[in-house]
């Protein structure tokens, strides 16, 4: 081929591929713009006052993923009419949790050269009390029952040696002193009575028993462990294997968790279980789909968790005693907290 012909081919290639690129980007932008228009068929959503204060009626505060002007804002619904009209708060979060008037919001901020993520501690009226920069993609957030302790987990990529491996970083914050433990990996790990340390230690999914004690998951050497943590002693102790994303019941007697089950596909490896802490008996729940969430106790008998839905995620409920079958609580919703 002559040089002129080569250059012509290159020019045409760049022209065509450039057009495809620009076209696709514009198509994606237009598609996203549609999500800002009110969604048909969804529950009505209006701006209003959302508070974390315990009131007369029980409410759910969560991230609403409904298309429209209030997409991804925290919203509130009465617990007895979860599918009904939503009150939007104007506060946007990727993940959220709240207890006793303290909220934690993991949010994304646009940066100049890269995305930035923050963990924000919110007061009763969802106003920021303090924020912390987090280095990774938010995944779990929890507040202790008293509202004093806050924990969050983010996914971090780029600090593994194999290449495609990710790790997690779990932080614990004391809001009374604003003391932040940046990584639970700074705690001493006790496994089978011995001190354990490994570079591939990863913690995720904290659930608080009280301001000093919590449960969480430790992943190490391709296994996961339920651990019990002690904030004052700065230790975590492994309790049993194959427990992820524990969630302690309001009465403190049971842990809901996701468990890897044998024979499941690698894309959907988990099932939701409940562990009775007194008898150490595991009960499989009536949900037979793979649950990849840290479930929340709606009350002492019912769990709520997210599954993928048409608009990001839907929230489902299931009885905690292994009976019944799943029921959809609301569409286009994620990360609920029970208030009141």
């Amino acid at each position: 081929m002559r040089n002129r012909a080569r250059l012509l081919v290159l020019f045409l290639t760049v022209l065509v591929l450039g057009a495809v690129s620009i076209g696709w980007v514009r198509y994606a932008a237009a598609r996203e713009a549609r999500k800002d228009r009110q969604q048909d068929g969804g529950p009505p959503m209006t701006s209003g006052q959302v508070t974390l204060a315990a009131g007369a009626s029980r409410r759910l505060v969560f991230r609403s993923m409904l298309w429209g002007p209030h997409r991804d804002e925290l919203a509130s619904v009465p617990a007895n009419d979860a599918a009904g009209p939503r009150t939007a708060s104007k506060v946007s979060c990727l993940r959220f949790y709240a207890a006793a008037g303290t909220g934690v919001c993991l949010r994304r901020l646009p940066g100049t050269l890269a995305e930035k993520y923050q963990a924000v501690v919110l007061d009763v009226n969802l106003h920021e009390r303090r924020h912390f920069t987090v280095n990774g993609i938010p995944t779990r957030a929890r507040v202790s029952p008293s509202g004093r302790m806050v924990a969050w987990t983010v996914f971090v990529s780029g600090d593994s040696y194999g290449g495609t491996q990710f790790s997690t970083r779990t932080s614990i914050l004391d809001t009374s002193t604003w003391t932040l433990v940046r990584s639970l990996e700074d705690y001493q790990v006790i496994m089978n009575g011995k001190v354990h340390h490994s570079v591939d230690d990863n913690f995720w999914g904290v659930t608080f028993a009280d301001d000093d004690h919590f449960y969480a998951t430790l992943g190490t050497h391709a296994k996961t462990y339920l651990v019990r943590g002690d904030v004052r002693a700065r230790t975590v102790t492994t309790l049993r294997e194959n427990v992820e994303c524990p969630s302690l019941s309001p009465d403190g007697t049971r842990l809901a968790f996701k468990k890897r089950v044998a024979g499941a596909s690698p894309d959907a490896p988990w099932r939701e279980y409940v562990l009775d802490l007194r008898t150490l008996r595991e009960t499989p729940l009536g949900e037979h789909r793979s649950v990849d969430d840290q479930a929340v106790w709606l009350d002492d008998d019912t769990l709520v968790y997210a599954l993928a839905g048409d608009y990001g995620a839907d929230l489902w409920t299931i009885p905690a005693d292994g009976s019944g079958s799943p029921a959809r609580l609301m569409t286009a919703a994620l990360a609920p907290a029970v208030i009141g």
């Binding site: 760049v14 591929l17 495809v20 690129s21 980007v25 198509y27 713009a33």
Partner: peptide
């Protein structure tokens, strides 16, 4: 930013750039 989080757009742009390299 331009594609408002459209990952498909990003992968396609990446594909077009990679194809230019092959050409």
């Amino acid at each position: 930013r331009a594609a408002v989080d459209g990952f498909d757009a990003l992968f396609m742009v990446s594909f077009c750039i990679a194809t230019t390299g092959v050409v």
